[in-house]
Design a protein around this nucleic acid. Structure first.
Lengths: 229, 229
DNA sequence: TCCGTGCATTTACAGCGTAAATATTTACGC
DNA sequence: GCGTAAATATTTACGCTGTAAATGCACGGA
């Protein structure tokens, strides 16, 4: 059996799991997740598609691996007293990661096998909220409410994967054939999206709304906080 | 040209768009969206796969049509003074529709072509919020924050498509190999999900949190409401 | 009767994930 | 150097996908 973990050996042009995953991410970022097939990804790496199976188990394993790389990009704030600031920074960082990798948000909820980076992310978020003093029966819902917003917003925002220039052109063509009188509020909404560009403010609006509400529940007005049951 | 809209003609066993979409929905509900291929769907209808192309344009058109059928199931409350109750009922109905058709939430944000039912839904929601007096610059964000929660929660909940019995078995196997000491809070979270069953309460928790916060912004404390600009 | 029209079938093709067999490259003991 | 075994890459093949194109068939009106 050949030696494992032989640092200085590295034959220059050999494949490994990370190179496969990185190439998959780059390709997905550039051309969409649909372009990332085994054959295409192999071609991208100068290799036949089947060669990839030496480094990844199958397509699912590859997607899980790519997703965990995205999770690793999420900045995890150190423990500290200010739970709200931590949750905010973590959520904004996660949101940014999803926007950098538009294919990842849709997989986030679909994949079941958590990689180490996602585990670290989840554990960090849960610990932060627990240490903030959220009672046990609230902790779960608190966490999921924040998480829902992150994923939901990313998916909504990525649903129209157009920059502002494209939006204007396509949108005007669209509104020409749109039954404006039948759905006036929807038409106004679409027009609003054509005129205004969202720079992540929409995400932070909902995020702060949620965090404010959670903070209110954490310390129920004047009543004393119940101890952990 | 043959006569259109000839009511009594209907040769009994002919296909039409609705029958195709209904069969697609039934099959997707029963076996997942992955099972709904053209050939399989044809077989389900006693027909070759290619026959479907006489009634739908292509796979995308079929998915959009199926999705619009789900949208049509969402109960749209009549206009009225209580925006909060309307938004709540609409959101809960939408959530229920997504849970009845577990494949639909993932498509909701991905599909660009809105069908009539979705347009009706969106227009109804937007009008309700506008009539509630949300100022224009808030209306868009208000709407999306609610929408994010609906979609986000559905996807999270459907990410583990297991009923309680399966969860217990699989979960315990999972926790056996899980690095509990490394991610203690995540482990506790998973254990919590194994023990407690969510009956939609988690959805309503976040929903009410958001609606409360929005109501507070709608009538900013003591200051008078600005007129529509 | 014949013809156009609408619907179903048949055939075909490129691309997908991947199992299996084969070929090639690499690393190590001698 | 060598041989050998392991690691890695290629080839071939199979069943599946969506769908273009050609064909077959039944019907309603001229």
């Amino acid at each position: 059996m050949p030696p494992l973990n032989e640092a200085p050996k590295r034959r220059r042009t050999t494949l490994n799991r990370d190179r496969v995953l990185d190439a998959g991410i780059a390709l997905a970022d550039a051309e969409g997740i649909g372009a990332v097939t085994m054959r295409r990804l192999g071609r991208e790496l100068g290799v036949e598609g089947m060669a990839l199976y030496n480094h990844i188990d199958n397509k699912h394993d590859r997607l899980d691996g790519m997703l965990d790389c995205v999770a690793a990009e999420i900045e995890l704030p150190d423990s500290g007293p200010d739970w709200r600031d931590q949750a905010r920074r973590r959520a904004i960082s996660a949101h940014a990661a999803f926007m950098r990798h538009p294919w990842s948000a849709a997989l986030w909820t679909a994949s079941i096998n958590l990689g180490p980076a996602r585990m670290r992310y989840l554990d960090n978020a849960l610990r932060s909220l627990r240490q903030a003093g959220f009672p046990l029966e609230l902790l779960d819902r608190t966490f999921h409410t924040i998480e829902n917003h992150i994923v939901g917003h990313a998916l909504q925002a990525l649903g129209f994967p157009l920059d502002h220039g494209q939006m204007e052109q396509i949108g005007e063509d669209f509104l020409r054939t749109f039954p404006v009188t039948q759905y006036p509020d929807l038409a106004a909404h679409i027009r609003h999206h054509l005129e205004h560009q969202d720079n992540g403010d929409g995400f932070e609006f909902g995020l702060d709304l949620i965090l404010d509400g959670l903070e209110r529940m954490r310390t129920p007005s004047q009543r004393p906080l119940p101890g952990p049951r």
